[in-house]
Design a protein around this nucleic acid. Sequence first.
DNA 1: AGCTGTGGCAGGGAGG
DNA 2: CCTCCCTGCCAC
Length: 787
Amino acid sequence: MPLPVQNSTATDAVLFGHDPTPRLVALHPLRQGNGADQALMRVYQRGESDGGLAVEDVPYYPFLFLTDLQALRGFPRQRFRCQTLQGRHAYRYLVVFDTWSAYHDAVRHLQAQEDARLYRIANPTQQYLMQSGRTLFKDMAFDDLHRMQLDIEVVSKPGTFPHAQRPEDRIVIIALSDNRGWHEIIDARGLSEKEMLEQLVRTIRERDPDIIEGHNIYAFDLAYITARCARHGVVFAVGRDGSAPRTFGAAMRFAERSVDLPAVDIAGRHVIDTYLQVMAFDVFKRDLPGYGLKAAARYFRLQADDRTYVKGEEIAQTWHREPERLIEYAHHDVVETERLARLLSGSAFYLTRMVPMPYGQVARTGPAAKIEALMVRAYLRQKHALPSGSGGGGRHMRGGYVNIFATGVVGPIIYADVESLYPSIMLNYDVHPETDDLGLFQVLLQRLTDLRLDAKQRMQAATRRADASALDAQQSSYKILINSFYGQLGFSVALFNDFAAADRVARIGQEIIRQVMGAIRAGGGRVVEVDTDGVLFVPPASVEGEEAERAFVDVINQQIPPGIHLGYDGRFRRMLSYKVKNYALLTYDGRVQCKGSSLVSRAMEPFGRRFVLEAIGLLLAEDVQGLHDLYVATRARLLRHEWSVEDFARTETLKENEAQYLADVTAKRRSRAAAYELAIARERETGQAVRKGEQIAYYVTGSGAHVTAFDNARLASAWNPAQPDENTDYYLRRLDECARKFAVFFHADDFARVFSLDDLFGFTPHGRELQTNWRAAESRTDASIPV
DNA sequence: AGCTGTGGCAGGGAGG
DNA sequence: CCTCCCTGCCAC
């Protein structure tokens, strides 16, 4: 599946650097060790003809940015060289060290001083790339890379989770595959665990992959293998220079969620964790059933043919009774991992061509770090000083304008949104950080926008599906970066932040969306809901059909500032408007799209979620009898325990680690919570550690509708259908809480009848009409405010 | 060393 | 009971 040729602008100095080195596979800094104390970068390149690797050692220099050279007084001058940078900013000196020991000594020297906060230690690998302008994977296609997948199966004590520190737990299968159709299984039938690990090292070195991929490979497979190698005295020497991996703590954020990782750096290779890629994908889609390999593979329809499934708790007995079955299971795991990686890695791969970071790092850092890397590289090339960033901790900034003007069922509906609102504002109103002396913020934003447009146009013109999907990966990776420019302005630790500029973008955004609302109302439309850059509204009765609706939006578009474009983004038969950011839309082909945490939250018990979704469908159809029947039937099933634990267990994500949680509880900063208490209890009993970011499914037991959940909760896996012990009163209350959401759509007495059991006279839907309530617009939304 | 933001809703626990 | 505060989830 060859990919299209490189971008026409790939020679752009700011975006891509200047180094013409082709086909660079990986870089790795050589740190202290083997007695040698040199500052060397080992560069791994693809050979010209035979496809083999060329390795070269390039001298480079670890360095620090300093605000004030005086901070280094007392440090031997002959151990460093200093470059003064131009400009007025904080980091005015680039201090380059000849050896690693000098670099580390200088760090210690500075840390011993009071003003240690004034310096910043740069990522040496990244800085090398910045200095040279080298860009990884230039001119390479994704399929040129040799990607290997790895998965291990561990047999542990019955009823416990694999634990690398327990001697009796052991690896019984190591499954490997690659994107060239090769696969291999190393298993414990003829080999000891130590021999298996040695075989693994040999195989990786012989196959010599550029990339090692796995699902949850950081937190599980590599961490486990590393610990077992240490136990057996095996050196896990899988680096291209024969070195063992370097591990370090890292954190990755996915919107509001944060995951701690034991990150791994293998010399000359890149580690890709598809678990993180799946989580990143879900930030935008938010409809994945789970982040595990099997759930994700099914979601993307990538399952292996005749997929073998083995439950976690059955791995041990399956290994003893049917080893072939467990081997097939592990093989299917690596096959699915390869497919997931192929599907989800595209955007990181294309960004690596542009951003001065190795591929593995691109895949595990957020967009703000990438933008900053581009800025810093360009500033260093021009020998210009860097700003220090303005901290700004705790400052509260303005956000988007949000409001709702009707509740109930309304229609027809047009959705119009301002395309790329914040990037458009920054480009059209020349918003940039006050500290950006070289004006690169605007240059980067404009060029990325042009690149994305170009990629999108070529995607639409592409005739082959493979080309189109590659171009889609490119344009979406540019989009992520483009949208992060605004976030960069308001990010407290970014070097090029500027809170006043961020505030100006948000303020202009609010004015523009108010202008849009004013124009819609002036044209006879009725605005139902507005959120940041989009408006849902009922067009005037004279506007009928899609063509007329598009024309109506075009007219609105004439009335907003030039350079800002209002797009026609959808039409709907009806809308159920509940609360701000909470609504449902009925499409013209009968589908229901439901939005908002109070309607579709994954924190809700699945039975309640299903009840709410079905009820919304009935409300949109104005089927009051159906609503009543649904309520009665759901209640009856609940009372008869006609369900499984998946229907009523609540799933929560742990956002803190165990120590942090316990510290917060002790300090009364937070209350006890069932999910954490259960995870901690599980750790005591089975040894499965509490991990930040993991999901816990539990249900409520005990009696009485109002019980303290953390004292009356059990893990979902402990529920026994033969002896159902869920708290029926509690779940009845939960059902009624779900039903109460719909009170606003009825008169009070009608609501009470619809969502209750039949009385002596039975239930009739007649006369129980849905209620729609419009509220007055704010006066100031109609005003046209110049921006 | 590695880290994008604000606005808004629901639910649970603690304490009056 | 109620309110306040915190966390988690979601829209954009």
